[in-house]
């Protein structure tokens, strides 16, 4: 590797670092406390030079096939990067391996809880077709485990609706997926 290539590679990795910080500012439009990095949908960031132009390629994976937030997220990523002067941005959609709530960061789970949404349980527990399973979900407000499922589908595809029998609040649970 010659000196120029090495120099370029260093620039690219510094740029990648900067882009990751910018991506941290892009939020899930449906759950605005979560950044897309907390959510675990950014799979790859590539910075490379082609025809003397610096290009950025970002791979994201959808949470749910029909999630309308995905189009908005792609647009927000593009806008954020353009705002900071990155002109050649390609956003790719990657389906496999399929997104799972296990990719959500611990920080993301804590943010969800303080926002009033119960964070997802580990995936192995409940992503099955077995019927009438009682899933243990803690109330994000009073932390009680004395909760009841109201509906497996909530205000968005990724959430279920629960009610806390102690503090009587209804709340969303981010389903394991």
């Amino acid at each position: 590797m010659n000196g120029q290539d090495q120099y370029r590679q260093e620039i690219h990795s510094m740029e990648k670092q900067k882009i990751m910080e910018l991506l941290y500012e892009v939020k899930d439009p449906e759950v605005p406390v979560l950044s897309i990095l907390d959510l675990g949908i950014v799979r790859e960031v590539k910075v490379y030079t082609e025809e003397d132009q610096q290009k950025v390629e970002i791979s994201i994976t959808p949470t749910y096939s029909g999630c309308p937030a995905m189009d908005v997220i792609s647009m927000d990523i593009r806008l954020k990067l353009i705002e900071k002067g990155y002109r050649h941005v390609v956003i790719r959609q990657q389906l496999s391996p399929a997104w799972t709530t296990d990719w959500m960061t611990e920080e993301g789970k804590n943010k969800l809880r303080s926002y009033g949404i119960a964070p997802p349980n580990p995936k192995q527990q409940f992503c099955i077709t077995e019927m009438f399973q009682e899933e243990l979900v803690n109330c994000p407000r009073c932390n009680s485990t004395h909760t009841n499922l109201i509906s497996q589908f909530g205000s968005t595809a990724c959430k279920a609706m629960y009610k806390c029998l102690d503090c009587t609040e209804t709340f969303d649970y981010f389903k394991c997926h």
Binding site: P62, Y64, S65, L95, S96, P97, A98, W99, T100, C127, I128, T129, E130, M131, F132, Q152, F153, A157, K175, H177
Partner: peptide, 23 residues
């Protein structure tokens, strides 16, 4: 590989549909 990827993604959603409708 494209069909396999779509199926891998979709089956997780369908698992919920099966459970909900069976109940």
């Amino acid at each position: 590989p494209d069909i396999a990827a779509i199926a891998e993604k979709s089956i997780k959603e369908t698992a919920y549909h099966v459970r909900w409708s069976a109940e």
